[in-house]
Amino acid sequence: MQNSHSGVNQLGGVFVNGRPLPDSTRQKIVELAHSGARPCDISRILQVSNGCVSKILGRYYETGSIRPRAIGGSKPRVATPEVVSKIAQYKRECPSIFAWEIRDRLLSEGVCTNDNIPSVSSINRVLRNLASEKQQMGADGMYDKLRMLNGQTGSWGTRPGWYPGTSVPGQPTQDGCQQQEGGGENTNSISSNGEDSDEAQMRLQLKRKLQRNRTSFTQEQIEALEKEFERTHYPDVFARERLAAKIDLPEARIQVWFSNRRAKWRREEKLRNQRRQASNTPSHIPISSSFSTSVYQPIPQPTTPVSSFTSGSMLGRTDTALTNTYSALPPMPSFTMANNLPMQPPVPSQTSSYSCMLPTSPSVNGRSYDTYTPPHMQTHMNSQPMGTSGTTSTGLISPGVSVPVQVPGSEPDMSQYWPRLQ
């Protein structure tokens, strides 16, 4: 039975679970980093996980050691009161100082060594604690504590007292930064006198190289990059290397530039699409467009005044059976039934097929058609009795279509119309 579990990581490298990497692998990681390889490249070359490479390099940059820390136990506290007071002093002298600059000053002034120097995250935590204590304490208590930490007896009751030896409130920041720059020169002199001055200088240079600022491109470089971006948004590694040799930039910087440029292009394309949609959409909808001609068919113009009344309900007709019959029939052209047409008796099958359309009241044959006459024609229609054979009435077949029909004066039988409509 094995005491430890061995495995293979996602890159194909072998590791022992819970145990640190061998010293030979750690040394190779540092050597590759000094030669300029990126952590992701080191991870692929040595088949070590990216997190492990970053952790080893980060500890090497901070402490200069590649040895693993002790497994188990607690780390001794490195942010001692003396170190905290120095950090507060540096922050007062130059409020814009960075944590890694404070760390360098602690090393250069001999406050800490490589073994007990606090990390950048520890210094940031100390600065946050100082800021929170400043908010919790009152103004007087804060000034007393700062005077105690600074070891001075001057008056701290006013704002300019934060910067000793100065009279203009805006000047101390520059003086403090100048003092810090002077301390940086002392850093070089002190570290050069040490035993491991060369190694420390190499480590600091490598650290500065990794902690780079934003790349500033010249106009020629920007023009070359934009020209390549117009050709393709995704250049391959050969195109990037050719462009890197042409404009004297690292291939990694060119790759990052193209990634950022593609993101910018997507944002601009989104804005262009929004403007295009806004320009195509009308600002207001016309009133006429809300009524579609496919839904509402136009009603033909009436030929006679009587045809303006298109349904039985508008003429005072309360018989719903006839109203439904007229509205359900398709529109037909106007025609006239003459008196000489043969009077065919209704076929029983045809009569039964339209039995649902006729009223059940037996008085329908005896009703006159003056009910369908509009009010303004009552006088004219009353002067001509319906009993004469020459009287013409208008029957409504569908809305908007008038059918003048000659009705025999002897017997106005409704059943004569249905064979004609089939």
Results as ranks from 00 to 15, higher is better:
residue 2 Q to M: 13
residue 3 N to W: 08
residue 5 H to Q: 12
residue 5 H to P: 13
residue 5 H to W: 08
residue 5 H to F: 08
residue 6 S to Y: 15
residue 8 V to T: 08
residue 8 V to S: 03
residue 9 N to V: 04
residue 10 Q to C: 07
residue 10 Q to H: 07
residue 11 L to W: 06
residue 13 G to Q: 03
residue 14 V to W: 08
residue 14 V to I: 10
residue 16 V to S: 12
residue 19 R to P: 02
residue 23 D to W: 08
residue 24 S to E: 11
residue 24 S to C: 12
residue 24 S to A: 13
residue 26 R to S: 02
residue 29 I to E: 04
residue 29 I to D: 04
residue 31 E to H: 06
residue 32 L to V: 01
residue 33 A to S: 10
residue 36 G to K: 04
residue 36 G to V: 03
residue 37 A to Q: 13
residue 37 A to P: 01
residue 41 D to Q: 14
residue 41 D to M: 07
residue 41 D to P: 00
residue 44 R to C: 05
residue 45 I to P: 03
residue 45 I to M: 14
residue 46 L to F: 04
residue 46 L to S: 02
residue 46 L to R: 03
residue 48 V to F: 01
residue 48 V to D: 02
residue 48 V to N: 00
residue 50 N to P: 14
residue 50 N to M: 11
residue 51 G to C: 06
residue 54 S to I: 04
residue 54 S to M: 03
residue 54 S to T: 08
residue 54 S to A: 05
residue 55 K to Q: 02
residue 57 L to W: 01
residue 59 R to E: 01
residue 59 R to A: 05
residue 59 R to V: 08
residue 60 Y to E: 00
residue 62 E to F: 03
residue 63 T to D: 02
residue 63 T to H: 03
residue 64 G to L: 04
residue 64 G to I: 01
residue 64 G to N: 01
residue 65 S to C: 14
residue 66 I to G: 00
residue 66 I to V: 09
residue 66 I to F: 13
residue 67 R to N: 07
residue 67 R to D: 07
residue 69 R to F: 07
residue 69 R to C: 06
residue 69 R to H: 09
residue 71 I to N: 14
residue 72 G to P: 05
residue 73 G to T: 03
residue 74 S to V: 03
residue 75 K to V: 05
residue 75 K to M: 05
residue 75 K to W: 02
residue 75 K to C: 04
residue 76 P to K: 10
residue 76 P to N: 05
residue 76 P to C: 09
residue 77 R to P: 00
residue 78 V to C: 03
residue 79 A to D: 04
residue 84 V to I: 09
residue 85 S to T: 11
residue 86 K to E: 08
residue 89 Q to W: 10
residue 90 Y to E: 08
residue 91 K to W: 02
residue 91 K to G: 15
residue 92 R to E: 12
residue 92 R to K: 13
residue 93 E to I: 12
residue 94 C to S: 13
residue 94 C to W: 09
residue 94 C to F: 09
residue 95 P to A: 13
residue 96 S to N: 13
residue 96 S to F: 08
residue 96 S to I: 00
residue 98 F to Q: 04
residue 99 A to M: 04
residue 99 A to L: 02
residue 101 E to R: 13
residue 102 I to R: 01
residue 104 D to V: 10
residue 105 R to F: 10
residue 106 L to Q: 03
residue 108 S to A: 11
residue 108 S to M: 12
residue 109 E to T: 12
residue 109 E to L: 09
residue 111 V to P: 13
residue 111 V to I: 10
residue 112 C to P: 05
residue 112 C to I: 06
residue 113 T to F: 11
residue 114 N to A: 12
residue 116 N to S: 08
residue 117 I to E: 06
residue 118 P to E: 00
residue 118 P to Q: 00
residue 123 I to Y: 00
residue 123 I to S: 01
residue 124 N to P: 00
residue 124 N to I: 00
residue 126 V to E: 02
residue 127 L to V: 14
residue 128 R to I: 01
residue 132 S to F: 10
residue 132 S to K: 15
residue 133 E to Q: 15
residue 133 E to K: 14
residue 133 E to S: 14
residue 133 E to T: 11
residue 134 K to L: 09
residue 135 Q to A: 14
residue 137 M to I: 11
residue 137 M to W: 11
residue 138 G to Q: 14
residue 139 A to L: 11
residue 139 A to E: 12
residue 139 A to R: 13
residue 140 D to T: 13
residue 141 G to A: 11
residue 141 G to S: 14
residue 141 G to H: 11
residue 142 M to I: 11
residue 143 Y to W: 10
residue 145 K to G: 13
residue 146 L to D: 14
residue 147 R to M: 12
residue 149 L to A: 15
residue 150 N to K: 13
residue 150 N to R: 09
residue 150 N to Q: 14
